[in-house]
Amino acid sequence: MNEKRIETSMAVQDNVTRLDAEGMLTPEKENRFLVVWRRFRRHRLAVAGMFVLIIFILMGIFAPLLAPYDPIEDQDPYNKNAPPSPEHLLGTDEIGRDVFSRLLYAARISLTVAFVVTLLSEVAGALIGGVSGYFGGWVDSLIQRIVDFLLTIPLLPLLLAFSSILRGIELPLIPKQYTSVIVISFILIAFGWMGTCRLVRGMVLSLRSLDFTEAARALGMSDGRIIVRHMIPNAMAPIIVHATLGLGGVIVLESALSFLGFGVQPPVPTWGNMLQAAQAGLLGQPAKVFYPGLAIFLTSLAFNYVGDGLRDALDPRLKL
């Protein structure tokens, strides 16, 4: 009987401890997305930035409905470089195409490339940097030397070297005019992840010696899970800053590629190549640089605020 009592009391105790542990591990089951959204909403400018981005994206998607003219076909040779007028809201360009329509269509490619490239290169950089910093030793040495190597390769000669090879390739299931967009995105990702990698590695080198990492390891968490659940979220602040700073750069870089005859080819409008084309007549018609520049600027600005809001919302230490 005595034994039995001890047994039951132990069982009860066991239950209690288990309950406690569960209670500690999973506080209130709340939708993570909702939590982030609630925090994000508090940052007014971030919400405004998000609306601007959404408007731009919608404008890109519904460009065929919104644009009064065709961006490539509708040329008015008697009305080149026209100032803004009721027919042409933002005037016409150097061969008489409607600038407003071109801006709308350009949003499609520019925004897609910018978002995809930024997102993927940040993810790749964060994962590789996390692995590099967390494991240290020869893994770190190897990855960091590869990063060093890639950082020393200049982008311009590289692209020139690849251009002739990559221009001819065809990807299955993808329309021909979008092949170059995908190839460009790929190259920009392949040579764009190193900055994030170095940033995250630096953070992780410091984070891995902190107590919570020890705790996670003691609890039997796998290395991969520690990297993804603990290291990278704690290194989120510089990642987001890097992403927000890089987004505008990607749009402009894409224009540099177009200039080399490698990027999206000129008749197809992108903000980048519109900016490039307008630079020629910069002092004569500064307004032409202004519109695509403004579009890039606004996207960049909006994304910066969204990034700022996201940083605050995703902060693992912030409890609201």
Partner: peptide, 23 residues
Amino acid sequence: IQMAIVVLVATVAIYGLLNLAPG
């Protein structure tokens, strides 16, 4: 030592790139 190797490999790559690029 690693740095020396990286620089060496990088110069090979850059030299190759310059010479293989069209133009």
